[in-house]
C-alpha cells in the first residue's frame, strides 16, 4: 500500500468514494437483515401473522436456547456437520481420483462416459430405499448419500478441467520429452487449480443437499432430522431454528473455502 500523500487529490477523492460505497453496501446488507427480522417479529406480536405458522425470531432464539439447555443442540449440529464434512471430503478425493484415471486412460473415459451421464441425471433420492437396506439408518447411510450426490459433479467438473489443458503447452512438454506423468504433474494439475476451487464451492453445496436429503430419508439425529421431525409434529419453531442454523453453517463452510482459495492462489504465486 502506498502512502496517501503521494496520490493526487482526484485519486484520494476516488478512494474515499469507494470506501463510502463499501460502507453503504454493508450498512444496507445488515440493515436489510435487521429490518426483515424486526418486521417478522413485529408482525407476530401485533397479530398480523400467526406465530404458530410463521414462528418468530424470538421464538427461534428460545427454541435454540432450550435445545442448548437440553444438551442436544451441538449433538444435532455435530451430527450433520460430521456427515456433511466426511461426505464432502470423500466425494472430493474419490471424484478427483476417478477424474484423474479418466484423464489418464482415454479408453476408460470412453467406456464409462454413458454411465456417468446417466448417473448424473438420476435423481439420487430414488436410491433412498436401497441405501436404508444396505446401510441401515445410521450415519453411514447419510454419508453415502452425501457422497453419491457430490461424486459425479466432482468427476465431471475436474475431468473437464484436466482435459482443457492447453494443447500448445502439451506439445511443448512432449517436445522436451516429458512423460505422461510429467505432463500431469507440471501442466494438467497446476492449470486445474482454479477449477478445483470452483469445484469445491459446488461440492460443498452438493454435500449439504446430500446430508440433509439423507437425514430426511433416514435418521435419528441431525439438523435435517429436526426439520422433518418439527414438520411432522407441527413445531414450526423447530423447523425454522434448524433451517437458520443450517444457513449459518453453509455460509461458514463457503467462506472457509473462499479463505482456502486466497491461500492457494497466494501460494501459487510465491
Amino acid at each position: 500500500m502506498k502512502h496517501t500523500e503521494t496520490f493526487s487529490a482526484e485519486h484520494r477523492a476516488f478512494l474515499k468514494k469507494r470506501r463510502l460505497r463499501l460502507a453503504l453496501v454493508w450498512t444496507l446488507r445488515i440493515g436489510l437483515l435487521l429490518g426483515l427480522l424486526i418486521l417478522w417479529e413485529l408482525s407476530t406480536r401485533l397479530g398480523w401473522a400467526d406465530p404458530f405458522l410463521t414462528s418468530s425470531p424470538s421464538r427461534i432464539a428460545q427454541t435454540i436456547a432450550s435445545l442448548y439447555e437440553e444438551g442436544t443442540l451441538f449433538y444435532h449440529i455435530g451430527t450433520t456437520l460430521w456427515e456433511t464434512a466426511v461426505g464432502f471430503a470423500a466425494a472430493t478425493v474419490l471424484g478427483c481420483t476417478v477424474a484423474l484415471a479418466l484423464w489418464w486412460s482415454d479408453l476408460l473415459h470412453r467406456v464409462l462416459e454413458p454411465y456417468i451421464v446417466v448417473l448424473n441425471a438420476l435423481p439420487k433420492i430414488a436410491l433412498g430405499p436401497l441405501i436404508i437396506i444396505w446401510f441401515g439408518t445410521g450415519s453411514e447411510a447419510i454419508v453415502f448419500m452425501t457422497v453419491i450426490v457430490g461424486l459425479i459433479v466432482v468427476i465431471m467438473h475436474m475431468l473437464t478441467a484436466f482435459l482443457a489443458a492447453d494443447p500448445g503447452k502439451v506439445l511443448l512438454l512432449r517436445s522436451m520429452g516429458a512423460s505422461k506423468f510429467q505432463i500431469l504433474k507440471k501442466l494438467v494439475i497446476p492449470s486445474s487449480l482454479a477449477s478445483f476451487i470452483s469445484m469445491l464451492k459446488v461440492a460443498v453445496g452438493m454435500s449439504w443437499i446430500g446430508s440433509i436429503m439423507g437425514e430426511y430419508i433416514v435418521s435419528r439425529a441431525g439438523l435435517g432430522y429436526l426439520i422433518v421431525y418439527g414438520g411432522q409434529v407441527f413445531k414450526l419453531d423447530l423447523v425454522l431454528s434448524a433451517t437458520c442454523i443450517l444457513a449459518l453453517l453453509a455460509a461458514v463452510m463457503y467462506f472457509l473455502i473462499a479463505l482456502l482459495e486466497k491461500l492457494l492462489v497466494k501460494n501459487a504465486e510465491s
Binding site: 492447453d166 500448445g168 503447452k169 506439445l171 511443448l172 512438454l173 517436445s175 522436451m176 520429452g177 516429458a178 510429467q182 507440471k186 501442466l187 497446476p190 492449470s191 487449480l193 501459487a268 504465486e269
Partner: peptide, 26 residues
C-alpha cells in the same frame, strides 16, 4: 528445442521457473 507461435510460458511459474522447465523435465 521447440519454440512455438505463442510463448507458452506457464502463467503460474515465474520466468526463472519457466526457464528451468525443460531442465526439470529432462
Amino acid at each position: 528445442g521447440y519454440m512455438l507461435q505463442r510463448d507458452e510460458l506457464f502463467p503460474w511459474r515465474t520466468i526463472e521457473k519457466n526457464l528451468f522447465l525443460p531442465l526439470e523435465v529432462k
